[in-house]
């Protein structure tokens, strides 16, 4: 037990995002309401975003926009800035996530109009007829 706590503290970012991830996954798999499935999907994607962004953090690093010194030359010390790559990747992933979310909501709206409900079992019932 004594080892576990420092271990969790030192790597709490992975713990946080993984727990969030599994909450989202549970929502996606187990919920009957399709809207809740979508909410689970968003949580799931957000957890991955957090996972990546937390990789980019560097102790003592500020945002990766170069600071200019007095001589108008940028300070090019790599340890002074956070890792820019995860931010770039996650910008892409956020956009992809938003696109997926939009499409999911659209299809859900259509399901609601076709079947009159967004509960999964009722939709299945309606399909069987």
């Amino acid at each position: 037990m004594d080892e576990l706590f420092p271990f969790i503290i030192a790597k709490y970012n992975y713990w946080a995002s993984l727990i969030l991830l599994f909450i989202g996954l549970y929502g996606m798999i187990a919920k009957n309401n399709l809207m809740k499935k979508i909410i689970g999907m968003v949580i799931f994607q957000t957890a991955i975003l957090l996972f990546y962004v937390s990789i980019g953090v560097k102790r003592g690093g500020t945002i990766p926009i170069l600071e200019f010194g007095a001589d108008h030359q940028p300070l090019l010390d790599a340890t002074a800035y956070a890792n820019p790559l995860p931010h770039v990747l996650m910008l892409t992933a956020i956009v992809v996530g938003v696109g997926t979310l939009g499409v999911a909501l659209t299809i859900l709206q259509k399901i609601q109009r076709v079947h009159g409900t967004i509960e999964e079992d009722e939709v299945l019932e309606d399909l069987r007829q």
Binding site: Q45, I107, H115, V123
Partner: peptide, 16 residues
């Protein structure tokens, strides 16, 4: 016809 529900399922699974 009822392609929407099938697609929705595909979307959720595909996203996973």
């Amino acid at each position: 016809g009822p392609a929407y529900y099938a697609t929705f399922k595909y979307l959720v699974v595909g996203t996973i």
